[in-house]
Computed example of a mutant assay.
Amino acid sequence: MTLKDFIEKSDRHFQREGLKSIPDISKDFFTSAISKTPYVNRFGTNVYEKEWDVLVILDACRLDLYRETINGDADTIWSVGSSSEEWMQHTFGNADTTGTAYITGNIFSREYLDENHFYALEEVWEYGWDDDEGTIPPRPLTNEAVRTWRQETPERMIIHYMQPHFPAIGSDVNIGGKIEKAKFGDPGRDFWLEMRLGSISDKDAWRAYRDNLEYVFEEVELLMENVTGTVAITADHGNAFGEWGAYGHPAGYPIPQLRRVPWDVYDCTDERTFTTTEPEKYEATATEVEDRLYDLGYM
């Protein structure tokens, strides 16, 4: 985040919340400064150093959650960031991406990426966003990824699902509507605050987190049935549940719960179990982008 970006973001935050925004603004300044230190920048494995044809990104998926829920024998790498912004900057800023199709549900693509540097940059969040859920469900991403891999000729493809990042739209855990089927926004930030205060139990939060991973992994399995090639599954970063005093996924934190992520590889063949559809596409307005980032708890 540049100084100009920080000032603009802080101003928007202050206009929305007044003096209540000061702690978050201070945290943004602190974590942004940490993330620019040389040690943090060069720490971790860039996914472009690994072998894969199709790369699945599960947003905010911890290694221990993945091993507990999906594959206990999954390998691991250290991520190049503890937040999506950091991961995008340190992944795509240090690699040749001209042969990569990036199919993303993560809104930070607009802020940090240039479509001219990719074979294709498909920002599915622009037209696949669900306002009722406060996030983008996985199916629009699966649809676009299968269509792209079958009909176009990228050398590599990355699919960036937003789950298991909260809200846990795949869970029925009742914790006051602060994660399941609630927009992020203030409820998203309040969720981590409530965890700090002990109002939401670690057990309930973890169950919702796990349910959300199981939910998105059904789509990952569908994807793997409908592409041919080496498919690797990983995450941009994890989530902290109070370890080292951290909650969520602030930038610049080199702790294992945030930087150690799964690396799970499969050889896949397109079995044609899924028929793609042509979605109605449109470009989100600047106001919609700002509102969605706010829903996600980033503004």
Rank of each mutant, 00 (worst) to 15 (best):
F6M: 15
K9I: 15
R16Q: 11
E17K: 14
G18Q: 11
K36N: 08
T37W: 10
P38C: 11
V47Y: 14
E51A: 12
W52F: 13
D53L: 06
D53N: 11
V56T: 11
D59C: 04
A60Q: 12
A60H: 08
R62E: 02
L65S: 11
E68Y: 02
T69S: 12
I70H: 00
N71H: 06
G72L: 05
G81Y: 08
S82L: 11
S83I: 11
S84K: 05
M88L: 13
Q89L: 13
H90L: 15
D96W: 12
G99I: 10
A101Y: 07
A101H: 07
Y102E: 05
F108N: 00
E115A: 12
Y119P: 02
Y119D: 01
E126K: 15
Y127E: 10
E133F: 03
P137C: 04
P137F: 03
P138D: 14
L141N: 01
A145C: 12
E155D: 15
I158S: 01
Y161G: 00
A168D: 07
V173T: 07
I175W: 06
I179C: 03
I179K: 01
E180I: 01
E180G: 07
E180Q: 03
K181L: 02
K181C: 00
D186P: 03
D186G: 04
G188E: 06
F191Y: 13
W192E: 03
W192A: 04
E194R: 15
M195I: 08
R196S: 09
L197K: 15
G198I: 14
G198V: 13
D202N: 10
K203A: 14
D204V: 01
W206T: 07
L213I: 07
V216S: 02
E219A: 03
L223Q: 09
V227L: 07
T228W: 07
N239F: 07
N239H: 09
W244H: 12
G245V: 09
G245Y: 14
H249R: 08
A251L: 06
R260E: 13
C268D: 06
T269K: 14
T269V: 13
R272I: 00
T276Q: 10
P279K: 10
A286V: 02
D291I: 03
